[in-house]
């Protein structure tokens, strides 16, 4: 893991990493990836599906709902029934 890779990941994750931390983050991530690399040595012959995973369905019925206002008012910026964000189109 090098500094350029960390910068690229930070961009993908929408997570600003200060310049001063890039080197230490790269070192620590490298160490963790070194640790998890032991899974590469495990021989797999079974199917890789998660055991017992099944789909769950429910009927589409109207139940009690949380008022929109209660959910919107916890947003950083909001107006009336809306969460406020800068213009996205044209970015």
């Amino acid at each position: 893991m090098d500094i350029e890779q960390v910068k690229k990941l930070a961009q993908l994750a929408r997570l600003e990493v200060p310049e001063s931390e890039l080197a230490s983050v790269a070192t620590e991530m490298g160490a963790i990836l070194g640790f998890v690399d032991e899974i590469q040595n495990v021989q797999i012959d079974a199917s890789s599906d998660v055991v017992g995973a099944t789909n769950i369905f429910r009927s589409d019925v109207v139940g009690p709902i949380i008022p929109v206002h209660d959910l919107v008012e916890v947003a950083a910026l909001h107006q009336d029934h809306f969460v406020k964000v800068p213009k996205v189109i044209g970015e």
Binding site: L9, A10, A13, R14, L15, V17, P18, E28, M29, L33
Partner: peptide, 19 residues
């Protein structure tokens, strides 16, 4: 926002997961 308000371990795991 995410860079300033998430702590070091959380940031580390998000980057690792992204990787």
């Amino acid at each position: 926002t995410r860079g300033a308000l998430f702590g070091k371990e959380v940031r580390r795991r998000i980057l690792l997961g992204t990787y």
